[in-house]
Design a protein around this nucleic acid. Structure first.
Lengths: 209, 209
DNA sequence: CTAGGGTGTGACCGGTCTGTATCTTCCGTG
DNA sequence: CACGGAAGATACAGACCGGTCACACCCTAG
């Protein structure tokens, strides 16, 4: 399929970006070199550097492409369940489950944040920006679905997803990730129950956390 | 503080292991070289290779040391709240929160799994083994605390913790991780409520997930 | 005092990495 | 056909990587 990526005559820039995304995802950012990317894209390093000024630029482009794909998925959710935010939320969970179980590498954004440890790496700003946007999007969906504590639910689901994808990398699908859907559904149900909401409000003295 | 690690006259092997843990943690495994580790340990590469056959061996030793430290923390929980598993569980949450908020890099085990993408890397078996052990330990604690669906609670808390630590790396402490304690406490409360347990059981048709 | 094991030192090897320079080839447009 | 810009090919620079070798050193045990 790498071959296909090279033969389907896209423009070199897109072939490079595509190959880079695939290889970064599978081998990690630091685990693959620009030369291998260029070769997988059916081109060479020189052309790569003519389109992307540096490996960092290429990394950032890939992260933005990931975000774009997620963006498309969000509109897909909406067209599949028009005017039914609750159904969209359940579809969101199902889609996330597909991500978790259908792929043994986690979220490219989170992985990049782990790999690029330098706090001033240019990709970090991009990662934060995208993740924040996605978080807000999920919170909006929860709000539209009539959840009272929408932000808290969105953040809980975010952490569960993030945790499921990283746990899947450490211990595999049989680990805690296996119950991802069940957890999410249960928590949504709990948020829809007014009694539970009350408990959530009164519970912690240190509500700041 | 690196200096201190070098001057406090531990044996070279321990100094190397300590420096490696610190540098791996801060810069990532692939982000630091054996030479830098040896220098930080106040010794040299040759001595490093006399004690650890390869960088991979050193990595594995560091991961085992991380596990050992966690092990100590578990017994600490028990001695701090003897015979009170529920208090231990709450203390576990508080301790995890310290980890999440007091350190801008995530879990060394999870990070290593991200960085070492090759599926046959020797460290992967170690990571899986340790993570599984910790998962079982948490499940046992939940069981001892009288939680009905102890395994499900333990897995949920595991994912929340894993997610909080990785999310903290991507979007910082102001992100979803900020509500980590509140989420955990609310979920425990929900698991202690029999009505909620009922809901969790009946909820998903695809209970396998 | 001596022997030997653990340690420090620096050079070195082969490989890989990002990034660049140079030159040729190709292809679409006018 | 002629031209110009995009792309391919290749070699190279400079740095860093993991890992090894040879040798000098020191400290302790006998």
């Amino acid at each position: 399929m790498v071959e296909e990526c090279a033969t389907t005559r896209l423009r070199p820039r897109d072939r490079i970006a595509g190959a880079a995304r695939d290889l970064f995802h599978r081998h990690g950012i630091r685990g693959i070199g620009v030369d291998a990317i260029a070769e997988a894209a059916g081109t060479n390093k020189m052309t790569l550097y003519r389109h992307f000024g540096s490996k960092d630029d290429l990394i950032i482009q890939c992260l933005r492409d990931v975000a774009l794909e997620a963006e498309h998925w969000w509109v897909e959710l909406e067209t599949d369940h028009p005017g039914d935010p609750l159904a969209q939320l359940h579809a969101w969970i199902a889609g996330c489950a597909e991500c978790v179980f259908g792929d043994d590498r986690g979220c490219d954004l989170a992985n990049a944040a782990v790999e690029l440890a330098e706090t001033d790496h240019p990709a970090r700003r991009v990662i934060e920006e995208i993740k924040t946007k996605q978080r807000n999007r999920l919170a909006n969906l929860c709000r539209e679905a009539g959840i009272a504590q929408a932000d808290l639910l969105a953040d809980t689901l975010s952490l569960l997803l993030e945790g499921a994808r990283v746990s899947r990398q450490s211990v595999g699908v049989e680990g805690p990730s296996a119950k991802f859907v069940r957890m999410c559904e249960a928590i949504i149900a709990s948020f829809q129950n007014p009694k539970s909401a009350e408990r959530r409000r009164e519970a912690p003295a240190m509500a700041a956390n």
